[in-house]
Nucleic acid binder design. Structure first.
Length: 618
DNA sequence: AGCAACCTAAACAGAG
DNA sequence: ACTCTGTTTAGGTTGC
């Protein structure tokens, strides 16, 4: 078995166990009745009775998980991830080699098997999985439950399993309650996983592969990438704690400096005892875990589909069009309605054969993925004056924005303009603008009151948006001249700007890259010069700089290229069409989740088949 | 510090 | 009365 496959296998095992465990834990937490019974086993120091009334509001979540931070961190960590992936491969290989030497059972333990082109697929999927896990880790980190040295800025891949390792979480809970951590002894024995009886069966599968078993290395470390070992491997003290890292408490929002572990434990017991706040924070974390777990399930499912596709059935339906991070709350509902067609025209059967977990739908309180990720002001939003032309970026990351609950890094004005310019007539009613937002961005399928208000506000405020009376109402057009006027002089690449651009870009870019690598032809506009690797992010960066105002429309699909190329188009934005256009979608009230892409027609040529089964979003 | 751009919230009014 | 649309004001953040 190759290192790649081995790693893959390891992760699969860990993820599967993580899924089970997290679900179990989540349900145990959210279910008052089961909580009593599960508390001893899971050792959750949380009383549901105290949790329930103490809800974390979306606003609070917003403070915890502000989108810019999310994007910046993701960008940072995704870049690091790629590097770490290679390191991890190498390390795994070395460890394997070491194992073989020490045990001299290579023949039995490592059935040599030609890789073939499976490796590429596995690597790609691994990338996804790790990206997902990175996100998971990131969420955990943001919650302060996983220490990640910010200055260090490296996220060793070994920490990926950490984010999802059941034993880690369980250990975490144990240690929150117990003043005396017990992981040291476990860690020394290198038996982290196996000591967890509740998951021993699941992990027994992981132990099938000897190299990843708990066999200790000469340095005393287990080859199994266990969280405990990992945390200790790059943290200062042997007696580490999941909530303690780099001298400070990693409890969400705490960051209290503690000189040593003892002091930290004392601090933990005093400051983070069982109270409303702590329970609420635990609840938040639980929601995070649930969200990620659902996403994890989807990614795992995607992996299976990929494997099936590559190994036997070339035309295997691709389930990955399902929203990834978006709509997690309603994912289960979504899954039953995902019979849409793909942009590529392939039928898209229901994808939830593996039954995505639906814990969130059961709970009375739901912290949506948007609250987890993206609600909240994004200041460093890129209008195209700073960044890649919006249409270009949208084209390249269309699928990403469409499916992922990520706030687009553009200003409202830019988005509105883009929406208008995408139409053949260069005009849209307000409702059509709304629809464009919801159609194009998963993010705008939530919090409609807020962003719709902002849209109206922008329409009224900016002179570049011209309201034109129509027979049956009014449409909005773009005075491109005004729009260009309001744009400041071309920016030079200041470090800050570059940084902002990176943060604004890379998240989508990287996601788009991996999506593109997988979905390739699912979106025509993604085919062309899209970014397939991280370097393309910098390429986009250049585009952003060089092409500051030669924006857009290079990719604008309706063929009518840049308005800048045809001044009359924006100077006199259009003839007002007689009919308010697209009765099929704007006649429908745009209620909260009305977004309903299923019957929204795309005004332009883009092959934007609706793949968002959001009929049950409300 | 000042400014510009941006975002969010909210109040308000008119039309349907 | 209600919703949608559109305008306006206010207060806040962010980056230059």
């Amino acid at each position: 078995m190759s290192p790649v496959e081995l790693l893959h296998f390891q992760q699969q095992q860990a993820l599967q166990v993580a899924r089970q465990f997290l679900l179990q834990q989540a349900t145990g937490l959210s279910s008052p009745s089961s909580n009593e019974g599960k508390q001893p086993a899971v050792q959750v120091p949380v009383s549901v009775a105290m949790m329930s009334p103490q809800m974390i509001t979306p606003q609070q979540m917003q403070q915890i998980l502000s989108p810019p931070q999310l994007q910046a961190l993701l960008q940072q960590q995704q870049a690091i991830m790629l590097q770490q992936l290679q390191e991890y491969y190498k390390k795994q290989q070395e460890q394997l080699h070491l194992q073989l030497l020490t045990q001299q059972q290579a023949g039995k333990q490592q059935p040599k098997e030609p890789l073939g082109n499976k490796q590429l697929a596995f690597q790609q999927q691994l990338l996804q999985m790790q990206q997902l896990q990175q996100q998971h880790l990131l969420n955990l980190q943001r919650q302060g439950l996983v220490s990640l040295p910010p200055g260090q800025g490296t996220v060793p891949l070994q920490t990926l399993p950490q984010a999802v390792c059941p034993s880690d979480l369980q250990q975490l809970w144990k240690e929150v309650t117990a003043a005396q951590p017990v992981e040291d002894s476990i860690k020394q024995e290198g038996l982290d996983l196996t000591t967890n009886t509740s998951n021993s069966t699941s992990f027994s599968a992981a132990k099938v592969s000897p190299p990843i078993s708990h066999h200790p290395l000469p340095n005393g470390q287990s080859t199994m990438h266990t969280p405990r070992r990992d945390s200790s491997s790059h943290e200062e003290t042997p007696g580490s704690h999941p909530l303690y890292g780099h001298g400070e408490c990693k409890w969400p929002g705490c960051e209290t400096l503690c000189e040593d572990l003892g002091q930290f434990v004392k601090h933990l017991n005093t400051e983070h005892a069982l109270d409303d706040r702590s329970t609420a924070q635990c609840r938040v974390q639980m929601q995070v875990v649930q969200q990620l777990e659902i996403q994890l399930a989807k990614e795992s499912e995607r992996l299976q589909a990929m494997m099936a596709h590559l190994h036997m059935r070339p035309s295997e339906p691709k389930p990955f069009s399902q929203p990834v991070s978006l709509n997690l709350v309603s994912s289960a509902t979504l899954s039953k309605s995902t019979s849409d067609t793909f942009p590529d025209g392939l039928p898209h059967p229901p994808t939830s054969a593996t039954a995505p977990i639906t814990p969130l739908r059961q709970g009375p309180s739901v912290i949506s993925s948007s609250t987890l990720h993206n609600v909240g002001p994004i200041r460093r939003r890129n209008s195209e004056k700073f960044c890649t032309p919006i249409s270009s970026e949208l084209a390249q990351n269309h699928e990403f924005y469409k499916n992922a609950d990520v706030r687009p890094p553009f200003t409202y004005a830019s988005l509105i303009r883009q929406a208008i310019l995408e139409t053949p007539d260069r005009q849209l009613t307000l409702n059509e603008i709304y629809n464009w937002f919801t159609r194009m961005f998963a993010y705008f399928r939530r919090n409609t009151a807020t962003w719709k208000n902002a849209v109206r506000h922008n329409l009224s405020l900016h002179k570049c948006f011209v309201r034109v009376e129509n027979v049956k109402g009014a449409v909005w057009t773009v005075d491109e001249h005004e729009y260009q006027k309001r744009r400041p002089p071309k920016m030079t690449g200041s470090p800050t700007l570059v940084k902002n651009m990176i943060s604004g870009l890379s998240y989508g870019a990287l996601n788009a890259s991996y999506q593109a690598a997988l979905a390739e032809s699912s979106f025509p506009l993604l085919n062309s010069p899209t970014m397939i690797n991280t370097s393309s992010a910098s390429a986009m960066l250049h585009v952003g700089h060089d092409d500051v105002s030669s924006t857009v429309e290079q990719v604008n699909s309706n063929g009518s290229n840049s308005p800048r190329l045809s001044p009359q188009q924006y100077s006199h934005p259009v003839h007002v069409k007689e009919e308010p256009a697209e009765a099929e979608d704007d006649s429908r009230p745009v209620s909260l989740m009305a977004t309903t892409n299923q019957n929204v027609t795309i005004p332009d040529d883009r092959d934007l088949e609706e793949e968002l089964p959001v009929e049950d979003l409300s």
